[in-house]
Write a protein that binds this DNA or RNA. Sequence first.
DNA 1: TTAATTTGTTAGTCATAGCTAACTTTTTTA
DNA 2: TAAAAAAGTTAGCTATGACTAACAAATTAA
Lengths: 228, 228
Amino acid sequence: MTNKLNLNNLTKSEEDYLKALFQLLIEDGATKVGNNQLAEYLKVSPASTNNMVKKLKTKGYVVSEKYGKLDLTEEGKPIAVRLIRKHRLWETFLCNYLNFTWDEVHDVAEQLEHIKSQKLIDELDRFMDFPQKDPHGEIIPNADGEYFVLPKITLSSLEEGDTCQLVAVNDGSVTFLKYVSEIGLALSSEIKIVEIREFDKSIRIEFNNAIETVTKKFADNVFVKKLV
Amino acid sequence: MTNKLNLNNLTKSEEDYLKALFQLLIEDGATKVGNNQLAEYLKVSPASTNNMVKKLKTKGYVVSEKYGKLDLTEEGKPIAVRLIRKHRLWETFLCNYLNFTWDEVHDVAEQLEHIKSQKLIDELDRFMDFPQKDPHGEIIPNADGEYFVLPKITLSSLEEGDTCQLVAVNDGSVTFLKYVSEIGLALSSEIKIVEIREFDKSIRIEFNNAIETVTKKFADNVFVKKLV
DNA sequence: TTAATTTGTTAGTCATAGCTAACTTTTTTA
DNA sequence: TAAAAAAGTTAGCTATGACTAACAAATTAA
């Protein structure tokens, strides 16, 4: 059983595609992921995606049948998980040690996650005393590549009268993250659903002894744990 | 006086060439730097260098006449200095916080210096409380881009009986750095020139109450401050 | 079940940045 | 100072990874 030493001779682009596919497959809970979907996610043309998928297939990281859906192989998955681990460790470092705010970390972490050095990431992990979650509340995969997905209950899925605790937010958009912190929400904030307006599905929520109205779109990007 | 905001829209390669040219021009004290010299330094072909130099000239960072020597413009220099600043700050971070040794930092810092984020480097500097020197003893350019070159007196330039203090080492080679630390030399080590052997210019030096013989090649890469 | 729409694929182009081989200019040295 | 060597340049090739335009297959809707 020659556990092949991962040389990680992948380009930045190849890494980006593998990570994106993983996130669509696993994180967003999609049952099937197609070429165009991946293209849209990465904001490149379907032709570019098709090209790269072809390459990743010959390298043994991706499988798909012609005109069929995409999947990661057992070799492809750990590469994606390691990238997510690196991304989240860097985000944690930036927030906790370098005074970055929620909305500032993502772009820099996107660059830092491609730095190739096993020692760098192991030592960074140790330096921060092995954090479990990143600043957005997402679980950081450990050095063994174990990956846990938080059950993603969105704020929008709750009903009037429910109470919940904020466990994570979608980190894709800077304007969203700014908005979240500006209204005073933070990880672990306790939120009560006061009212859901039938007309436009907007939600009146109570937290920090104040009431705020948010849209359904907003609530779709806020992940919570329901309190009993 | 519109101090043009530096967008730093340069590729990794462009940055590498500018930094390399700067180091040949300023640090190694070369009066003239030619195309092939730059190529050799960067370990690429003269044709590649010629090509890139052409590009950097149209961008206004490099000047040269056809078949003439290369020079950096006033726009090109600060870009190189900023890269050196980033490189040295990262090296310092890796050594002082992440348990990296002298010889391990260089390759990772080469990657990290290309991360584009002004805030990242400013905050890293602040986090480490504005260090003045990197782990190899080289002065770190400050945020204003002020660049001081240590007067580079090599160990090989001294004479028998002279005493000196190690202030810096050439960080280009891993085997050299390993060698330096293995024999027990470190920054600020006090070294006495016991004897210079005429035959092969090898030098017997005394430090830490022990005597060691080193070659001229070794002594060429050790920078010292002469003690009176 | 055919037609329209969406999704996926292919071919061909572009920019970056490397390379070799051939050539020109400059510098060195005999 | 003329020949040899070194340094610099150009042309043309390669790979990566974008792109558009045209086309094929699969899916959805009429």
